[in-house]
Computed example of a mutant assay.
Amino acid sequence: MNAGISVNLRSPVPPFEQIRAQIASLITVGTLAPGIRLPTVRSLASDLGLAAGTVARAYKELELAGLIETRRRNGTVVAGTPAPPARTDAHGQEAATAEVLAAVDRYIAEGRNAGLDDAALLEILRARQGWSHE
Protein backbone atom coordinates (compact mmCIF):
# COMPACT_ATOMS: atom_id res chain seq x y z
CA MET A 1 0.00 0.00 0.00
CA ASN A 2 1.53 3.33 -1.02
CA ALA A 3 -1.32 5.68 0.05
CA GLY A 4 -1.59 7.04 -3.50
CA ILE A 5 2.00 8.25 -3.50
CA SER A 6 3.96 8.15 -6.72
CA VAL A 7 7.45 9.20 -7.69
CA ASN A 8 8.53 10.55 -11.05
CA LEU A 9 12.17 9.57 -11.45
CA ARG A 10 12.52 11.93 -14.43
CA SER A 11 11.54 14.93 -12.32
CA PRO A 12 14.29 17.32 -11.17
CA VAL A 13 12.63 17.19 -7.73
CA PRO A 14 14.42 14.56 -5.63
CA PRO A 15 12.34 11.47 -4.85
CA PHE A 16 12.44 12.07 -1.08
CA GLU A 17 11.00 15.57 -1.64
CA GLN A 18 8.25 14.21 -3.90
CA ILE A 19 7.27 11.76 -1.16
CA ARG A 20 7.48 14.43 1.56
CA ALA A 21 5.36 16.90 -0.42
CA GLN A 22 2.70 14.34 -1.31
CA ILE A 23 2.32 13.06 2.26
CA ALA A 24 2.27 16.62 3.61
CA SER A 25 -0.45 17.49 1.10
CA LEU A 26 -2.50 14.42 2.01
CA ILE A 27 -2.27 15.42 5.67
CA THR A 28 -3.07 19.07 4.97
CA VAL A 29 -6.24 18.29 3.03
CA GLY A 30 -7.36 15.67 5.55
CA THR A 31 -6.99 12.58 3.38
CA LEU A 32 -4.56 11.27 5.98
CA ALA A 33 -6.17 12.02 9.34
CA PRO A 34 -4.37 12.18 12.68
CA GLY A 35 -3.70 8.70 14.03
CA ILE A 36 -3.58 7.03 10.61
CA ARG A 37 -0.70 4.63 10.39
CA LEU A 38 1.69 5.13 7.48
CA PRO A 39 3.40 2.26 5.68
CA THR A 40 6.75 1.24 7.10
CA VAL A 41 9.80 2.79 5.46
CA ARG A 42 10.76 -0.53 3.91
CA SER A 43 7.25 -1.28 2.70
CA LEU A 44 6.77 2.10 1.01
CA ALA A 45 10.27 1.97 -0.46
CA SER A 46 9.53 -1.47 -1.89
CA ASP A 47 6.18 -0.33 -3.33
CA LEU A 48 7.82 2.68 -4.99
CA GLY A 49 10.96 0.84 -6.12
CA LEU A 50 13.22 3.13 -4.10
CA ALA A 51 15.92 2.76 -1.49
CA ALA A 52 14.70 2.67 2.10
CA GLY A 53 16.95 5.65 2.90
CA THR A 54 14.98 7.79 0.43
CA VAL A 55 11.69 7.13 2.21
CA ALA A 56 13.38 7.42 5.62
CA ARG A 57 14.59 10.92 4.70
CA ALA A 58 11.08 11.97 3.67
CA TYR A 59 9.65 10.60 6.92
CA LYS A 60 12.37 12.35 8.94
CA GLU A 61 11.52 15.71 7.36
CA LEU A 62 7.81 15.16 7.95
CA GLU A 63 8.56 14.30 11.56
CA LEU A 64 10.68 17.44 11.98
CA ALA A 65 7.74 19.44 10.61
CA GLY A 66 5.48 17.87 13.23
CA LEU A 67 3.24 16.17 10.68
CA ILE A 68 4.05 12.58 11.62
CA GLU A 69 5.50 10.83 14.62
CA THR A 70 7.18 7.49 15.07
CA ARG A 71 5.98 5.39 17.98
CA ARG A 72 7.91 2.32 18.99
CA ARG A 73 5.08 -0.19 18.89
CA ASN A 74 2.62 1.61 16.64
CA GLY A 75 4.97 2.54 13.83
CA THR A 76 4.73 5.89 12.06
CA VAL A 77 1.43 7.73 12.40
CA VAL A 78 0.00 11.03 11.26
CA ALA A 79 0.32 13.59 14.02
CA GLY A 80 -1.89 16.05 12.20
CA THR A 81 -1.53 19.61 11.09
CA PRO A 82 -2.78 22.80 12.59
CA ALA A 83 -6.02 23.90 10.97
CA PRO A 84 -5.60 26.94 8.76
CA PRO A 85 -7.05 30.07 10.27
CA ALA A 86 -10.66 30.72 9.36
CA ARG A 87 -11.01 33.55 6.89
CA THR A 88 -14.03 35.51 5.97
CA ASP A 89 -14.86 37.26 2.74
CA ALA A 90 -16.32 40.75 2.31
CA HIS A 91 -19.75 39.38 3.21
CA GLY A 92 -18.56 37.79 6.47
CA GLN A 93 -18.71 34.24 5.11
CA GLU A 94 -15.97 31.73 5.80
CA ALA A 95 -13.79 31.28 2.72
CA ALA A 96 -13.05 27.82 1.33
CA THR A 97 -9.49 27.76 2.71
CA ALA A 98 -9.16 23.97 2.71
CA GLU A 99 -10.32 23.69 -0.89
CA VAL A 100 -7.90 26.37 -2.02
CA LEU A 101 -5.00 24.70 -0.18
CA ALA A 102 -5.93 21.37 -1.77
CA ALA A 103 -5.99 22.97 -5.22
CA VAL A 104 -2.59 24.56 -4.64
CA ASP A 105 -1.15 21.24 -3.45
CA ARG A 106 -2.52 19.51 -6.56
CA TYR A 107 -1.05 22.25 -8.77
CA ILE A 108 2.38 21.84 -7.19
CA ALA A 109 2.26 18.04 -7.38
CA GLU A 110 1.17 18.06 -11.03
CA GLY A 111 3.81 20.62 -11.92
CA ARG A 112 6.55 18.64 -10.23
CA ASN A 113 5.37 15.45 -11.91
CA ALA A 114 5.70 17.33 -15.21
CA GLY A 115 9.29 18.24 -14.30
CA LEU A 116 8.68 21.90 -13.42
CA ASP A 117 10.58 23.59 -10.62
CA ASP A 118 9.18 26.19 -8.20
CA ALA A 119 10.30 29.11 -10.34
CA ALA A 120 8.49 27.71 -13.39
CA LEU A 121 5.32 27.07 -11.38
CA LEU A 122 5.37 30.62 -10.03
CA GLU A 123 5.94 31.99 -13.53
CA ILE A 124 2.89 30.10 -14.79
CA LEU A 125 0.78 31.61 -12.01
CA ARG A 126 2.06 35.08 -12.77
CA ALA A 127 1.37 34.70 -16.48
CA ARG A 128 -2.17 33.42 -15.88
CA GLN A 129 -3.00 36.31 -13.61
CA GLY A 130 -1.04 39.02 -15.40
CA TRP A 131 1.18 39.63 -12.38
CA SER A 132 4.34 41.65 -12.78
CA HIS A 133 7.83 40.27 -12.19
CA GLU A 134 8.67 42.07 -8.97
Rank of each mutant, 00 (worst) to 15 (best):
N113I: 01
G115N: 08
A33K: 13
A51F: 08
L26W: 05
R87I: 06
V77C: 07
R73V: 05
I68Q: 05
L125T: 04
T76N: 09
R71A: 14
A52I: 01
D105T: 01
L26R: 10
H91Y: 13
L50E: 12
G30A: 04
R87E: 14
L38W: 02
N113A: 14
L32A: 03
R37D: 08
P85A: 13
T88F: 15
Q129Y: 15
P39M: 03
E99M: 09
L125E: 10
L67P: 00
A51C: 08
G111N: 02
G130A: 04
A51I: 01
G49C: 06
A83L: 05
A120P: 00
A24I: 01
R128W: 10
L101K: 08
I108P: 00
G115Y: 06
G49T: 03
A83E: 12
G130C: 05
A52D: 15
L64I: 05
A33W: 06
A95N: 09
K60D: 12
P85F: 08
R106T: 09
V41R: 03
R72N: 11
L38Q: 03
A114K: 15
A109W: 08
E123L: 08
A56C: 04
R71K: 15
R57G: 02
I36T: 12
S46V: 03
I68M: 05
G130F: 07
I36K: 12
L101H: 05
R37W: 06
E110S: 12
L64Q: 14
L122W: 11
E110K: 15
L64R: 15
T54C: 04
A56S: 13
T31A: 08
A33T: 07
T40I: 02
T70R: 14
Q129E: 10
A58P: 00
Q93R: 15
A98G: 11
L121G: 01
I27F: 02
A96N: 15
A95F: 03
V29Y: 08
V78P: 00
V78F: 10
A96C: 07
S43N: 14
Q129A: 11
A102V: 01
R106V: 10
I27P: 00
A120W: 03
G92L: 03
T88H: 13
S25H: 11
A51E: 13
L121A: 04
A83R: 08
I36V: 09
Y59T: 00
S43Y: 13
L64H: 14
R106S: 10
G130T: 02
D118F: 06
E123R: 11
L121C: 03
I108E: 09
N74F: 14
G30C: 02
